[in-house]
Amino acid sequence: MPVPRVITYAGPACPRCNLPLSLENLTLAEEICPRCQGYFKATVFHPPQRVARVLQIGQSGPESTTGTCANHPRNIAVTNCGRCGLFICSLCELEMHGEKYCPACFDRMTQNGGAEEAQTRFRDWGALAIAMALCALVLDWAMIGVPFNVLSIYYVIRGFRDPQFSRDKALLPALSLLLALVGLAWGIVVIAKFLKVGSL
């Protein structure tokens, strides 16, 4: 179970000294921080607020035939979950790949790896592979490096098959593969020498 991370972020701040800034005071393109007197270039944006169009049951009128939201009994359901069929209002509606889901199904899909776009934590196969390959190089001297080399090659393959794999991440797995193959050959030579001579 991953430990929840506490992220402290207090909104826009001076990029030099992290002094919280009021966006109303930032009007010019070139700003000077009042605390550190540091110069920085800034562009302020005013994103429009998202307006959730939620209608409560009392506002629908007598002709309304739609059901109520399973999570918010006072809100009218606008659709139903594409996975479990639950009636949901526009507050609960989560869209992914053109399908609409309720929050519970969305969480389950994220945990099971069904929603790659919503995932926030991934295994770093490249780092694992290089760590194993380096361990194997050291342990080859003691003739126990071969399994670690095999493990490193396995991690490299997993890394290349990962949907998150991209070309800019290819260097580390490629280096690991090279190290692991060299290590594997070296480990086999060491074992063969030992079997032939009878000592290291």
């Binding site: 800034l21 966006l23 800034a42 562009t43 934590r121 991934f122």
Partner: peptide
């Protein structure tokens, strides 16, 4: 963000951006 042997992903949506700055140091 690399966190030992895991990668933690954060997203800053363009729709939520309040400020973009650039400075030299």
């Amino acid at each position: 963000e690399r966190d030992n042997f895991a990668i933690v992903r954060k997203r800053v949506f363009f729709e939520d951006v309040l400020l973009i700055t650039s400075h030299e140091r």
